[in-house]
Amino acid sequence: MGGAQLEMPGMPRRLFPATPSKLAAFSDCPRRYRHAYVDRPTPARGPAWAHNSVGSAVHAALRSFWELPLAGRTAGSARQLLYGVWSTAGFRDAEQSERWRARAAGWLTDYVTGLDPADEPVGTERQVAATTERLALSGRVDRIDQRGDELVVVDYKTGRSVCTDDEARGSPALAAYVLGVRRTLRRPCSRVELHHLPTGTVAAFEHTDRSLANHVRRAEDVAADIAAATAAVDGGEDPDVAFPAAPGRQCGWCDFRPSCAVGQAATPPRETWSFLAEEEVVQAPPT
């Protein structure tokens, strides 16, 4: 099970290696965290999801867009990059996949048209890291922009719900990226932005030392709970007790549903294309 490490008196505290997705998994459902990060071999995962296929293709196209020579950074090039990485995984059929590929290409056209191709990002898909008193945080930032004397964290979004400033403020991942950019690049960074490609909107927040400290405190609390659960298993406790399931609607789309009887009993499975917005994107919370 990946045991807890003993600490010798007088030695520095061992930092918990954390990523935003790792901490989020435990917060959402300790059982899902165990399946993803503790159990070996990792239990079988469920099927691919169409909305993830859309998001992955758009992210990959935008990363490759900035790797093109300046003269090649055009809307047409962005569409071709999307076509080259498009996956049909999770879609109901070929017709639905083609329709969504065209829709995503439209998002890219509109988004790239609004960019200055000469405004070179400081980083794309950049790995950053930082430490706190108890954590070794790391994560991968979609894009890091230079704005005046400061750096800005940019996160691409392709979901059906419009992003809000409150979402930008409350995102643990974006806060971790700010800390990582500051430590890794040694530059001022406070602003985070969610770029929602389906609507062309931007949600933003300017972090302060206080807001970042609040995020760090919550992340360290989650890490402490993970360490306690892991230590309990190492001490002989039943893993299902130490890492309990948190059943709810989310069980309908959990990757580890095939391995979780509690989740299977909680709610019926969702269709793998059910998170696609078949109509126009509206301002509504995700289901």
Score class of each variant (00 low, 15 high):
Tyr111His: 15
Tyr111Asp: 14
Tyr111Gly: 10
Val112His: 06
Thr113Trp: 07
Gly114Glu: 14
Gly114Lys: 01
Leu115Gly: 06
Leu115Asn: 08
Asp116Gln: 03
Asp116Tyr: 02
Ala118Lys: 07
Ala118Val: 05
Ala118Glu: 04
Asp119Met: 07
Glu120Met: 11
Pro121Glu: 13
Gly123Met: 04
Gly123Phe: 02
Thr124Cys: 13
Thr124Phe: 05
Glu125Cys: 08
Glu125Tyr: 10
Arg126Ile: 10
Arg126Gln: 15
Val128His: 00
Ala129Tyr: 04
Ala129Thr: 05
Ala129Leu: 00
Ala130Gly: 13
Ala130Cys: 12
Thr131Lys: 15
Thr131Leu: 12
Thr132Val: 07
Thr132Tyr: 07
Thr132Ala: 12
Glu133Cys: 04
Arg134Gly: 00
Ser138Leu: 08
Arg140Ala: 08
Arg140Lys: 11
Arg140Pro: 03
Arg140Met: 11
Val141Asn: 05
Val141Trp: 01
Val141Tyr: 03
Asp142Ala: 11
Asp142His: 01
Asp145Ala: 14
Arg147Asp: 15
Gly148Ile: 07
Gly148Pro: 01
Asp149Pro: 08
Asp155Ile: 04
Asp155Leu: 01
Gly159Asp: 01
Arg160Asn: 07
Ser161Ala: 11
Val162Trp: 03
Val162Ile: 15
Cys163Trp: 00
Cys163Ala: 15
Thr164Glu: 02
Asp165Met: 06
Asp165Glu: 11
Glu167Leu: 06
Ala168Phe: 03
Ala168Pro: 01
Ala168Cys: 09
Gly170Arg: 10
Ala173Pro: 03
Leu174Ser: 04
Leu174Arg: 09
Tyr177Phe: 04
Leu179Asn: 03
Arg182Leu: 09
Arg182Val: 10
Arg182Gln: 15
Arg182Asn: 12
Arg183Phe: 09
Thr184Pro: 03
Leu185Asn: 12
Arg186Thr: 07
Arg186Met: 05
Arg187Ser: 15
Arg187Ile: 09
Pro188Ile: 01
Cys189Phe: 03
Ser190Tyr: 11
Arg191Ala: 08
Val192Ala: 04
Leu194Tyr: 04
His196Ile: 07
His196Glu: 13
Leu197Tyr: 06
Thr199Met: 08
Val202His: 10
Val202Gln: 12
Ala204Ser: 15
Phe205Val: 05
Phe205Arg: 02
Glu206Ala: 08
His207Lys: 14
His207Ile: 02
His207Phe: 06
His207Cys: 04
His207Pro: 03
Thr208Asn: 04
Arg210His: 11
Ser211Pro: 03
Ser211Gly: 06
Leu212Glu: 00
Leu212Gly: 02
His215Gly: 09
His215Gln: 10
Val216Asn: 01
Arg218His: 11
Glu220Ile: 03
Glu220Thr: 00
Asp221Lys: 01
Asp221Arg: 08
Val222Ala: 07
Val222Tyr: 04
Val222Arg: 04
Ala223Leu: 08
Ala224Gly: 09
Ile226Val: 12
Ala228His: 11
Ala228Leu: 13
Thr230Ile: 11
Ala231Tyr: 01
Ala231Glu: 09
Ala232Ile: 08
Ala232Thr: 05
Ala232Cys: 10
Ala232Lys: 13
Asp234Met: 14
Asp234Asn: 11
Gly235Gln: 08
Gly235Glu: 13
Gly236Cys: 09
Glu237Thr: 12
Asp240Trp: 09
Ala242His: 07
Ala242Cys: 12
Phe243His: 11
Ala245Arg: 08
